[in-house]
Design a protein around this nucleic acid. Structure first.
Length: 207
DNA sequence: CAAACGATCGGCT
DNA sequence: GCCGATCGTTTGC
């Protein structure tokens, strides 16, 4: 799987909305303390400075927190939301261009049992995976062991505990839906931009 | 230094 | 559906 790690060029493109769409179907993997967990990305959102009011770096606002977003594409921007949730974003575009993609949901592939433990959920009894395990950005991070301590790490270097792989399977355009992003009602006209993408016909997307 | 505010979640009604 | 939890970041006084 590491051999199919997404190359720098994938992240360096300037069209973050396109990258958000293309991240659907890619595999998000963590290997923390030798424990591997992974899942197929099923829901994303694009955030784009300077014109997107919902982006933390709106107006190219540069602070200690947003600094990572200004770095070269291919790193993780992880921040704390509501004092509880560690939200995982993929930094894209060349240095000085603050774009990022929030990963909102995945479909578990490896390490399901560890995910249940990390989430504090009772282990499944039937064959079906509880969709709540990895739907919603806070849940994704918790299930994969991602936290703000990993903010800024590279997704490209061979020894990174977090990376994204391409299995070679892309979703067809007709299998993808788009709509307004979640929880950004404060951001004026930007709130209506259809920069949220999700896979049709999968239970692993939050309603 | 104080205070307001989230790119949310889960429990309870 | 509604609501409280919980704390780092940011901004304003």
């Amino acid at each position: 799987m590491k051999t199919h790690r997404l190359p720098p060029e994938f992240y360096l493109r300037t069209d973050v909305v396109l990258v958000a769409r293309e991240l659907l179907g890619k595999i998000l993997i963590t290997e923390i303390n030798g424990i591997r967990t992974s899942g197929r990305i099923t829901e994303t959102e694009a955030y784009r400075a300077p014109d997107d009011r919902a982006c933390h770096a709106f107006g190219n606002l540069r602070t200690a927190r947003t600094e990572v977003m200004f770095q070269e594409g291919g790193r993780a921007y992880i921040y704390l939301c509501y004092g509880i949730h560690h939200l995982f974003n993929v930094v894209t575009a060349p240095q000085e261009t603050a774009h990022a993609v929030l990963i909102r949901a995945i479909e578990p592939i490896e390490g399901e049992d560890v995910m249940y433990e990390r989430r504090g959920l009772p282990k499944k009894i039937s064959g079906k995976i509880l969709t709540r395990l990895t739907t919603g950005p806070g849940s994704v991070s918790k299930a994969l062991g991602i936290h703000t301590g990993l903010n800024g790490i590279s997704l490209l270097s061979g020894d990174s505990p977090v990376w994204i792989a391409d299995e070679g399977r892309a979703y067809l355009p007709e299998d993808i839906q788009s709509g307004p992003r979640i929880g950004i009602d404060y951001s004026g006209e930007c709130a209506a931009w259809p920069w949220r993408f999700w896979v049709k016909n999968t239970p692993f997307v939050k309603k």
